[in-house]
Design a protein around this nucleic acid. Structure first.
Length: 499
RNA sequence: GCCGGGGUAGCUCAGUUGGUUAGAGCGUCUGACUGUGGAUCAGAAGGGCGAGGGUUCGAGUCCCUCCCCCGGUACCA
């Protein structure tokens, strides 16, 4: 009793996961495929530490010497605030600032790894998760942004997402700012710039378009909105004319990129930043078109907002457009799995001058879960597809030879090192995802033969085992006995058959 | 953070107006079947009801506090 009380309950932190071998393997395969695309465009790997000084991450709260509540932070032995990185972009800007004189410019790097955030976990949301970024630092050219879109498109296709099952949407924060300028002035008789917090609130509301619809956005911009749980969300309190302006903007759609640009012209050309934004998008369109990327892959969409703080120009996101049914049979959309944009101001806090930069980031876990639902990643392959069983433990040396023979032939093979009987060995093989079992007792040995059991076939046939198990066991339809010399050949055949 | 709904075996859940040793299905394990996983049959193990306090002769059932989970919402670099 006392001992029971003293025992430690195994627990795991909220939002953190243990990942089994099949998931880790699937993720590694996915990462390898993505890396190949990034490298095809000349990006090189970079690794930075998991821990950074909080001020270098830029996450001290204003008006306070406490770090932002959204990050995992603590004081180190020198009393300095340190924190786990919450993305890969902040460490990149720190790295660039430290090495600005030695880096080739433009500097292009990719980085993959875990990041940590203190957020409420939900379906597909965790406190520790992987991101896979690529960024171009030191180029203000829209060619870099256009390339980012092409890479996002190629990456998704390289992962097996069919054209049409995804879309890269592009917008420009400068266009958005142009609209905000108009909201701020003339049309209301007011004038001057919007209060930054109001501007932010407007962007936040626009960002919710997907979720709450155009009517919802209008409510959020006006007096506020009551959601279905009864909670009231305070509105931005814009005037009706201002709301109408935003609505007009959001309703602009076009199937072609140039079509959207012309449609936007009337709304934002009165604004200098707005015109600049349109011009940048025009350059991106030209580069995309020259690269052979049509609107079926990369489209312009005026409703894209993305992260609020640091984007300064083009913003893009890659979204999966198909629906899936989750475990409860509920229809779900995966939505955005890939996002990025231009952030010309990030290095400034270190160097005092702007270094232009643009890039994008994959939400690895979300995309992986989408690919799993798509059936694009197999999750049942064992690292070694073959188990060499030990029917007769006195023949172990012979079994070791068989295992070596398979390995020498390039086939991963596991020798059963447990102590249980043959029935349990098959169970073990079946549960650990093996494709085949090698069986050899004194019968086979005497005839220079081996038996090879096809576990997957056996699993299928077993549905009709029925009552007559005796006969089933005698026939062993999923098992073949072949000359020992044909072992490797036969196993290869099975592996080919089950992919 | 806020609103709503929940916490009873590994899982899904049942537990009458508070009343004797807390149940089922699935899963697990064992055996029939010591050279064959998936079928069938038989049997076994496994929880003291999220935690703590209170009311009561007596609480999984009532009251209070806290914790956790789920859904929605806010925030999200």
């Amino acid at each position: 009793m006392n001992e029971k009380l003293r025992r430690i309950e195994p627990r795991r932190l909220k939002g953190f996961r243990d990942l089994s071998g099949d998931v880790v393997s699937a993720r590694e395969r996915m990462i390898a495929a993505v890396r190949a695309v990034y490298e095809r465009y000349g990006f090189a790997p970079l690794e930075t530490p998991a821990l950074e000084f909080v001020d270098c991450l830029g996450k001290f709260l204003p008006e306070s010497d406490q770090p932002d509540a959204g990050i995992f932070s603590f004081r180190d032995e020198d009393e300095a605030w340190v924190a786990l990185r919450y993305d890969l972009t902040a460490p990149l800007s720190r790295y660039v600032a430290m090495n600005i004189n030695d880096l080739p410019m433009p500097f292009r790097r990719y980085q993959v790894g875990p990041v940590w955030r203190v957020e409420k976990p939900g379906p597909g949301r965790f406190r520790e998760f992987y991101q896979f970024d690529f960024d171009t630092v030191g180029s203000a050219s829209m060619l870099a942004d256009a390339e980012a879109c092409m890479i996002m498109s190629e990456t998704l296709e390289a992962l097996g997402v069919a054209r049409g099952d995804y879309i890269i949407r592009v917008n420009n924060r400068k266009v958005l700012n142009g609209v905000l300028e108009r909201v701020a002035r003339g049309d209301t008789g007011g004038g001057g710039a919007l209060d930054p917090s109001v501007a932010l609130a407007i962007l936040r509301s626009i960002d919710k378009l997907d979720k709450v619809g155009i009517e919802g956005v209008e409510q959020l911009l006006g007096r506020g909105r009551k959601d279905e749980s009864g909670a009231f969300i305070k509105g931005v309190e814009l005037l009706p004319e201002q709301i109408r302006l935003v609505r007009d903007y959001l309703e602009i759609r076009s199937d072609s990129r140039t079509g959207l640009l012309s449609a936007l012209t009337g709304l934002v050309e009165a604004s200098t930043v707005g015109r600049e934004g349109l011009d940048e998008l025009r350059q991106i369109d030209e580069a995309l078109t020259a690269g052979g990327f049509g609107a079926d892959r990369v489209t312009f969409d005026s409703t894209v907002v993305r992260g609020l703080e640091y984007y300064t120009g083009p913003v893009f996101e890659g979204a999966l457009t198909f629906e899936i049914k989750d475990d409860d049979g509920q229809v779900r959309q995966f939505g955005s799995v890939f996002g990025g944009g231009r952030y010309d101001g990030l290095v400034k806090r270190f160097l005092g001058r702007e270094i232009p930069a643009t890039g994008a980031s994959i939400g690895v876990d979300r995309l992986l879960s989408a690919l799993t639902h798509l059936g694009k990643v197999s999750t049942r392959t064992a690292t070694a597809p073959v188990l060499v069983t030990r029917l007769d433990k006195t023949l172990t040396a012979e079994y070791q030879r068989i295992a070596s023979e398979l390995r020498d032939a390039g086939i991963n093979a596991e020798l059963y090192v447990g102590t249980q009987n043959i029935g349990k060995q098959f169970q073990y093989a079946s549960r650990s995802g093996k494709v085949a079992c090698i069986v050899m007792g004194s019968d086979e040995l005497g005839r220079s033969e081996v038996s090879i059991k096809d576990l997957r076939l056996g699993e299928e046939l077993s549905k009709e085992v029925g009552e007559d198990r005796k006969r089933w066991l005698e026939q062993q339809p999923a098992q073949a006995t072949v000359p020992r010399a044909q072992l490797v050949e036969h196993v290869r055949g099975l592996l080919r058959k089950w992919g």
